[in-house]
């Protein structure tokens, strides 16, 4: 079976130890056919975690030469949140050019693409790909993969945070009532248009709720989000099916509309 982004995210989700992330990042590198991929996170309290495929020589050299100070990738991405092609960075200083030459000599590659990741509480991490390619080919590659890479970078960061904090279970990110409603109706077999109508929102807004729920659940697509929500007991899909009368046992249409505290919604859903 061929490599897919969904499959990769599934492997990522199943990882239970930080060491596993090193294998996964190497797998991703091979699958995408680039020279290197590196993930690096530095927390405000100085905790650090990183993994990647750079050679040991280069990592040692980077530290010894204190390249962190002059690396345009760090300077250009730190505290930002849009993906950055290395060609957009300022390599004009002599130190930056020398650094780049040294990086190329150590096999990093002449092209790079870095995705800054911002988490709650000011957490910052960087997910970087590098390769040997001409500018046009690299621009094509990053254009084609940008969306997937943004998702992969953020899921990778979530996983690294979860594992680094020594938590075996993913911290439960509560779904809001709207997200529960949206996933529940989808799980019941309603189409997006119908669900949007029932919740009295547009399909675009429904997509935003699904998108947000998907991220919280660490799911790679809508189907997976629904499956995971059911498995985790966050939504319960029982008796009422699509064509059943009365929409949902015990639920009035007015219940669906009413925003309520999340624990109430969870208790209610669990009780059904």
């Amino acid at each position: 079976m061929g490599w897919t982004v969904d499959g990769f995210l599934r492997s990522l989700e199943n990882a239970t130890a930080l060491e596993r992330l090193q294998d996964l990042i190497a797998e991703l590198r091979d699958a995408l056919g680039v020279a290197h991929i590196v993930y690096h996170w530095v927390s405000a309290d100085g905790q650090q975690y990183g993994c990647g495929t750079y050679g040991r020589d280069w990592c040692i050299r980077y530290v010894v030469e204190n390249y962190l100070r002059i690396d345009p990738v760090i300077l250009g991405c730190f505290n930002r949140f849009h993906p950055v092609d290395w060609n957009q960075l300022d390599w004009s200083s002599k130190a930056a050019r020398a650094f780049r030459d040294d990086a190329i000599a150590h096999g990093v590659g002449n092209q790079g693409f870095s995705i800054p990741v911002r988490g709650p509480g000011g957490q910052f991490a960087l997910f970087t790909l590098s390769d040997n390619a001409d500018d046009a080919a690299w621009a094509d590659f990053t254009h084609d993969h940008q969306r997937d890479l943004i998702l992969i970078a953020h899921f990778f960061n979530q996983k690294a945070l979860d594992l680094a904090q020594g938590r075996r279970e993913e911290p439960s990110k509560p779904l809001s009532p709207r997200e529960v409603d949206a996933l529940t109706f989808l799980a019941m077999g309603y189409g997006r248009g119908q669900v949007a109508e029932m919740l009295r929102i547009s399909e675009h807004t429904l997509r935003a709720y699904i998108e947000s729920a998907r991220f919280k659940l660490g799911a790679q697509n809508t189907i997976h989000a629904i499956t995971k929500a059911i498995t985790d007991g966050r939504i319960v899909v029982g008796g009422a099916r699509r064509r059943a009368m009365g929409a949902w046992p015990g639920l009035q249409p007015s219940d669906v509309e009413r925003p309520e505290p999340e624990h109430d919604a969870a208790a209610r859903t669990a009780a059904e």
């Binding site: 990741v117 000011g122 957490q123 943004i150 953020h154 809001s176 709207r178 991220f215």
Partner: peptide, 23 residues
């Protein structure tokens, strides 16, 4: 994915805590 005004103060208006790298 980081701290936002909507999630900190207006979650009740948004109907959900909105978190996504694509939003």
């Amino acid at each position: 994915t980081g701290d936002t005004m909507v999630n900190d103060h207006f979650r009740h208006l948004a109907g959900a805590e909105i978190r996504s790298p694509l939003i």
